[in-house]
């Protein structure tokens, strides 16, 4: 799937666009996929120039994931431009300029999604500027953004299921990310919704606030799980099931324990790579 999405990006948007590929976008493609696997092909590529590697042939879901990935990556870069001064924003500006033609094309194919991403990112930066102390409200912008990925899905039941699943995935990601940045944000004086909500100084959890926060994460995971069970994801069921019922708990726990940053990401990356390549 990872390789399939990469080829899809290349076919639709040219070589440069292939560099935005990451595992988050691959997960997106999996969630949007049909229950059956598409046919596999093999080809040489930059990452494997000698030995032809197997990849899944492009499907409608992969095209959708590719279009939406380009839009997300582009706005992520523009966000980087806005967040930095002129000099430090240079590299973001340079890369986003390279991605510009791909973005224009993707935005023309998926205007609804592009609009949703723009609206929610504007909302998010306004909330951050206003130092929003509600962690639900702050995470809502990113959650709605991710949920709108499902907006282009035709089947109404499937769209509802995916919207709910992605909303809570977005909420979870935003909150876990904020929890992971607690110490860094406390040191730099940056906005952190979780610190504001629980009144944490120096980014250190109290047992009670930690418990409350974990519970809130669990409610989101529960919502993801109950949504996930209402649609048949076919061949993708095992990997999604493991992520929802195990992976999220363990990542959340590692972040709360403060063990996520120390090598955990690297281990997780290797492990995920292993899983992805076999699917």
């Amino acid at each position: 799937m990872y390789c399939g999405l990469c080829h899809t990006l290349g076919q639709r948007y040219g070589q440069a666009a292939r560099f935005i590929l990451n595992y988050d976008f691959t997960y997106l493609a999996i969630l949007l996929s049909e229950p059956e696997e598409s046919g596999a092909s093999a080809a040489r590529c930059f990452a494997s120039p000698l030995r032809p590697r197997e990849y899944l042939e492009s499907t409608a879901a992969m095209s959708l994931a590719a279009d939406e990935s380009v839009i997300l990556a582009y706005w992520q870069l523009r966000d980087g431009v806005a967040d930095h001064d002129w000099l430090h924003g240079l590299k973001y500006r340079a890369v986003s300029a390279v991605l510009e033609p791909a973005y224009r094309k993707a935005a023309a194919i998926r205007p609804g999604f592009d609009e949703a991403v723009r609206t929610q990112l504007t909302r998010l930066s306004a909330l951050e500027k206003a130092q929003c102390a509600s962690m639900d409200e702050a995470s809502d912008a990113f959650a709605v953004l991710l949920g709108s990925v499902a907006g282009e899905v035709d089947d109404p039941v499937r769209r509802r299921v995916l919207e709910q699943l992605l909303y809570h995935l977005g909420r979870w990601v935003y909150l876990v990310d904020a929890a992971d940045d607690l110490k860094k944000d406390a040191a730099n004086g940056n906005y952190n919704p979780v610190a504001l909500r629980f009144g944490l100084s120096n980014g250190i959890w109290t047992p009670q606030s930690r418990g409350e926060f974990a519970l809130s994460l669990d409610h989101s995971i529960r919502m993801m799980a109950t949504a996930f069970e209402l649609w048949d994801f076919g061949v993708w069921t095992p990997i999604l099931e493991t992520t929802i019922y195990q992976g999220l708990f363990h990542v959340g726990k590692a972040v709360l324990d403060g063990t996520f940053r120390t090598g955990y990401r690297e281990e997780e990356r290797k492990k995920r790579k292993k899983v992805e390549e076999s699917t």
Binding site: A214, D218, I221, E229, Y245, F249
Partner: peptide
């Protein structure tokens, strides 16, 4: 339900459900 509801949530194999429940 908000405070304890997730403990009874369905999980395949009947394992405990929760971020703090693991470990």
């Amino acid at each position: 339900f908000m405070e304890r509801g997730t403990q009874t949530a369905y999980r395949p194999g009947g394992q405990p459900f929760g971020t703090e429940a693991c470990g």
